[in-house]
Design a protein around this nucleic acid. Structure first.
Length: 153
DNA sequence: GCCAACGTTGGC
DNA sequence: GCCAACGTTGGC
């Protein structure tokens, strides 16, 4: 089992949005970064756990736990001319952008803020906390995952 | 809204 | 293949 952190702007899609339909999986669409795509395409497995992170909000931080709910498949928004994620270079017969579905897994009792994460010595190595990191999907170690869950419990 | 950091694009 | 220009991310 692998662990991940995935960023979402809560104005666009929040952890509460995901939780409001707990039995339903949601496509993690709109990723247009190759490294992030490769994590979904090559490394994620159904059942992997995800720290659902709220970015571009105050306070930013981990809002809850989700899980990977599908095998990778082409991102349909890349083919949709009306979508803001439309990419004319991604043809259906040769899709450039790949995603997985995610679904609700568990609550945290409270948000674990970015500031708390930065202040926790045991999280110093977390990929998402490294200087200048803008990747929307980053791997997380089991230890880091457990620490965040404890901070939020 | 600002801006540092970073990824991508495209001319050469 | 280099790199300047540009667009985006995301904390503050």
């Amino acid at each position: 089992m692998n662990y991940w952190l995935m960023k979402s702007e809560p104005d666009v899609f929040s952890f509460d949005d995901l939780k409001s339909r707990p039995q339903q999986s949601e496509p993690w669409d709109g990723v247009r970064n190759y490294q992030a795509r490769n994590f979904m395409r090559d490394e994620m497995k159904v059942g992997d756990l995800i720290l659902f992170y709220h970015s571009n909000t105050n306070p930013a931080g981990v809002a809850g736990v989700a899980e990977v709910a599908s095998e990778p498949y082409p991102d349909p928004t890349a083919f949709d001319k009306k979508s803001k994620y439309y990419d004319p270079k991604s043809a259906p017969e040769n899709p450039r952008w790949i995603l997985v579905d995610v679904k609700y897994h568990a609550d945290l009792k409270r948000l674990v803020s970015l500031q708390e994460m930065k202040e926790a010595p045991a999280l110093k190595e977390m990929v998402v906390l490294q200087r200048g990191n803008r990747l929307s999907i980053t791997p997380v170690t089991r230890k880091e995952f457990n620490i965040i869950c404890e901070l939020g419990s």
